[in-house]
Structures are given as structure tokens and as C-alpha cells.
Nucleic acid binder design. Structure first.
Lengths: 315, 315
DNA sequence: CTCAAGCATAAGCGCCGCTTATGCCCGGAG
DNA sequence: CTCCGGGCATAAGCGGCGCTTATGCTTGAG
């Protein structure tokens, strides 16, 4: 029944003291104000402006509207400013979820870039394995998930469901076979899975274990998994102690630089991709876009030149 | 840039959790909401709603708008309610100015009626002679002026300027000639001004004095004004003491019921009208309209059936 | 008396924004 | 696996809101 435009007009009249003045202040013509007031008056059922001679004065009801206008317009301006701050990265929030081993270097580096570039964007970070992080993404509890996916597998079972999501490839992580330094096959340049069919295996996280099973299956055996732990430091400790062999991503190895452990490249090679995942909508949220940019930058990947999040109302 | 309708939509989406639900809540169709959100998004330059699958969720920016919506819409409702209260006479104010002798009975009676009928309308009452009250009316400091005007004078000098004002005749007040009970002409049924040309005169307020001068001028003499006072009680006291004669409105005489004073009807008769004066605009203010109605009722005059102040937006 | 200033009114119309109709996509059930 | 229902997006259409230009009227000042 009564809208912001009406209040704006009433306030302008109160300030300017005339329809013409209000029109100039608002960038309208005088008849527009005249009609606007009339509309307001018949909508509210009350006379708002007293015309006497060639001057106008607000009636009591008019004063009421002009008074309320101050608060309403201020609140509207505040809302606009807050939105504009989010759009301009002077505010906003991005909720990031990354799997544990990515927290080692990639994510901290990216978050440092983001924080440096947009200090007023608040960052929420949670560690989570891909299944959970993607679920959170779908549930609306997360804006960007740093996940990984094993590539080249013709068995689709361990691939995450990425439908309706948008991914950015951050890193290609080669999976190596970690063996104790004294292992008989440690001096070979490469490792063929079939050669390790009788070893005892140490499995990582559930998905990594799936990957192990898949690779071994391809090589024609079912691995004897003697140990399971999600902590790669523990995995490497077990390998060093000669308790088994394990598939370990190169990124982990580079970060941990384990001694007395040899990491053999697999033949054929197996990689996993490290991805930044979000939804098409969230990607257009400025803070999310900036976060993905920072992740790409930290990974040394060209920043996706997604079209500007949105044209900010061309003047 | 952002208006109340937009906020209302965002809030409805937040509450309903879906576009369809919001549309039903607001009485729109679903595409209307869909387009509204899109408009808002391109206006603000930020994505406000995250569409995932067949559910929608507000983004951070969307939440901001929905949050601000509460306050803004509440303020708008408050303004509407306040206006509606004024229109419905559950609030409002009327500023009345009346000349002193009208305060004796007419105005108190009218204000009692008004207060009884609309207890929540606040009344401001100021005593003022017609020139001041009408000036206040023109200046916007008064809503209703109770004034008087002498009628039948062909000299326009004492008539008030009533252009651009609207008047309601309340009472016809006959002007009588007050003489001491023992006066030689006191036993005549009527008085002719010319017979009192050699009397000493007692004049009332400046305008009444003007009226006296006018009547005397018509009768062919200039009155010898020996006393001047604005207080009619004093006037009557002076008359009773035999210090002079005076023109006194019948209303005063009826209220004062002075003893030892004879009030002779003039021949030809002279009357003054007691009027309720306002402006065409103010007359449509509900409280003002009610006040004038109460004045007419108190005066025993049919209440002016002015068209309803305004059609309150026919549903 | 004339002129400038200011509001009201009329006519015109551009465009905003709602509706109807339809398509597409997702998710659940048989 | 396929069907179906629910929900959002899109297209087309158009009614009407609300602004502009043009003009008249009233007022107050010189």
C-alpha cells in the first residue's frame, strides 16, 4: 500500500518545502510529485499535504510519513550498503572445506592470498573428506570444497558424484608406491602393482582404500590390507618400519619428506586430481569467486576467467 | 535501487523456503517471484538465491536482505498503522482557536462532544481574536478558527478576508444595545442608533469598536468612546454603573445575565455571525472534520454533509 | 497591472512487472 | 528403470502504473 518511493517523496517535500523543490531534489518533474502525492493521499485515505496559496505544508499525517521516511530510508540504505559491501568484497564470507592433507600447504597458501587481497572477507574453514565436504556443499553448509578424485579409473565407483557442481582443477597429484628403503624392489625405477601382490598393505582413508582395491584389482589380485589409518604420517611410519607398503600421493611425500622410505612411480601411472568444487550459483558470489581464484593461484593454475559475477547495474 | 516489494519477496522466500511458497504467501504466481529475484540480483549485482536441485536457499547476501526486510517492513507497517489511526480518528490532533467570548459555552460544549466521540484525538485549544486566529490558520499553526463576522455592513473594512477559506455558519448573534436600567430610553422596545448619538460609549475589542463606528456612521454620528475594554464583564459593569452605553452581542448577555442592565434590540437589527473557519484541505483531515462537526452540533446547526474525507482504498 | 513562481490537470506513452503457457530438471515410487 | 509429481526457468503477451510534456490557474510581488 505504501512504498519507499512514496516515503522518499514525502521526505523530499518536507525538506524542500515545495513540490518543485522536491522534484528537483529527486530528479523528477513537478507534475510527477503532484501526482505522487495525490496517489498517496487516495491510497492512505487521508490528506497529506495542505495547499495554501502557492505554498504547501505537510498535514499531521504527512508529517507522520515524512518522519517514518527517515528510518525506513536509512534502513534501506543500510541494506544496500551491506549488499554492496558483499558485492565489492568489502565484506562477505566464504565457507571452505578441504580434505586433511590439502590443508598442509595448498589451502593455507590460498587462504593467505585471499586474506591479503580481501582482508574484510571472513573465512570459515573446516577439514573434511570429499564425501562430507561435497555433501555439505549440496546441503548449503559450504561454499567451496577442495576435493580429490582419482582419474583414469574405468570403475566409476570411487568417483564422486559431481553432477550439478562446477569444478576447477587445482593440482595433478601422482600416486606413488611407498616401500621401506631396504625393500627388494626399492631400487627399481618404477613399480608394477602386480609385483606387490603378496605384500602386506597399509590403507589410508576409505576412498584411498577404494583406489587401492581398484588398482590391485586391475593388476589381478586382492591386496592384503594389514593396516588402516587415515593419518599419512602414520602410514609412512608403518612403511618405514617395514610393516607393509602403501599408495601415497606425491603431495604428501613432498610435504613429509620421509626418510628410509622410497616412493616408486607406478607403471602405469595413477593420478588423482585435486579440485575446487562449488555450485554454479555460489561461484558467482564474489567471496566464493575470490576464494576459488586464490586456490587456483596457490596451485599455480590460471585463474578461471569466469564472466564477471554480475553487471552491477550499468549507469 | 531496492524497494519494499523486493524485501518483502526475499523475506517470503526465506520464510516459505521456496519460490512457489513465497508466491502463494504474497498472492503472486511463481514466475513473478522468479523474475523478481532475478531483477533484484541484477540490480544488486549479487546472487541472492542459490538454486540447487529443486530447492532454493538464500545466499549470504540474500540473508542480509531478508534480515533487513523485517525491520523495514515493520517500519512501513507502523507508518501505515499510524496513518490509518489518524484516518480512523483513533489518533490525530486538531488545533482550535476561538475568540474569547466563544469559549464561554459554544466551544466547551463542542470540545466535550468531540472528546466524547473520539477520545483519542488530541485537542489543542488557544484563545485568539479572529484576526490572529485566521492568520494562524493561514500560517499553518491552526486547523479550525472560530471567528465572527458582522453582517449586513456595506463597508467591507471590518470584514475578514475569507478568500481561500471555507466557513461554516455556527450561530447568528444579534447585537443589542446595553443601557443602564434607569436610562430614559430603556423602556422603549427597540433602540435606534441615532437616538444615542450624544451618549458616552463603551467599546469592546478593536473589531467590535470598528463595528460600533460603522453603525454609528450609518446613523450619522461619530460615537464618543469614553471607555475601551476587551472584557465584556467589565463592559457590562460600566454600563450598569451608568458610565455609558455599549453594543453587546446577545450571546454575552445570555451568558452573563446582567442585572440592572437593559439590552435593547437595534432597529435596524445588526447581527454578527459566528463561524467555524478552516481551509479546504484541512477540512478533509478527519480530526478537523470531526471538530467542525462537533462545533455545528454544539451550535445546533445541521452538520455539513461534506463528502467523506476520502475513499479509503476500496478493497 | 504585469510578471514570475508554483501547483493542477490533461494527454500521451514507454516500460515495468504480472500472468498464462510451456519446458526442463530433479527426486521419489512402483 | 521408468514414470510421475513438484518446482524453477523461460517466453510471450499485455495491462496499467507512473513519468513527461504542455498548458492553465492562482497567487504574490514589483
Amino acid at each position: 500500500m505504501i512504498d519507499a518511493a512514496g516515503l522518499r517523496v514525502m521526505k523530499a517535500i518536507a525538506d524542500a518545502g515545495s513540490f518543485t523543490g522536491a522534484a528537483n531534489a529527486l530528479g523528477f518533474t513537478q507534475p510527477a510529485i503532484s501526482q505522487m502525492v495525490r496517489r498517496l493521499e487516495q491510497r492512505t485515505g487521508t490528506i497529506l499535504v495542505e495547499r495554501y496559496g502557492r505554498q504547501v505544508r505537510l498535514t499531521e499525517a504527512g508529517e507522520v510519513l515524512a518522519r517514518h521516511a527517515v528510518g525506513v530510508l536509512a534502513a534501506l540504505d543500510a541494506a544496500e550498503e551491506e549488499i554492496s559491501a558483499i558485492a565489492g568484497l568489502r565484506a562477505g564470507r566464504v565457507r571452505l572445506m578441504a580434505f586433511p592433507s590439502s590443508s598442509a600447504s595448498l589451502v593455507p597458501k590460498a587462504l593467505a592470498i585471499l586474506k591479503d587481497r580481501h582482508p574484510d572477507v571472513t573465512i570459515h574453514f573446516t577439514e573434511a573428506e570429499p564425501p562430507e565436504s561435497l555433501a555439505a556443499l549440496r546441503a548449503g553448509d559450504c561454499d567451496v570444497a577442495v576435493a580429490f578424485a582419482y582419474e583414469g579409473m574405468d570403475l566409476g565407483e570411487i568417483e564422486e558424484d559431481l553432477t550439478a557442481l562446477v569444478t576447477h582443477k587445482l593440482l595433478d597429484d601422482e600416486v606413488r608406491l611407498a616401500v621401506p628403503a631396504g625393500h627388494p624392489l626399492a631400487t627399481q625405477g618404477v613399480a608394477h602393482m602386480a609385483d606387490f601382490s603378496s605384500e602386506e598393505w597399509i590403507a589410508g582413508c576409505p576412498r584411498c582404500r577404494g583406489h587401492l582395491l581398484s588398482l590391485a584389482g586391475h593388476a589381478g589380485f586382492a591386496p592384503n590390507v594389514a593396516f588402516e589409518t587415515e593419518d599419512y604420517v602414520a602410514v609412512l611410519g608403518l612403511v618405514r618400519a617395514g610393516l607393509g607398503v602403501a599408495l601415497v600421493p606425491d603431495l604428501i611425500l613432498r610435504a613429509a619428506k620421509p626418510e628410509h622410505v622410497v616412493a616408486l612411480p607406478l607403471e602405469p601411472a595413477s593420478r588423482r586430481q585435486i579440485l575446487a568444487v562449488t555450485t554454479p550459483d555460489l561461484q558467482r558470489v564474489p567471496a566464493v569467486h575470490a576464494a576459488i581464484g586464490a586456490l587456483c593461484e596457490a596451485a599455480g593454475v590460471p585463474v578461471p576467467q569466469v564472466e564477471e559475477p554480475m553487471a552491477p547495474a550499468p549507469v
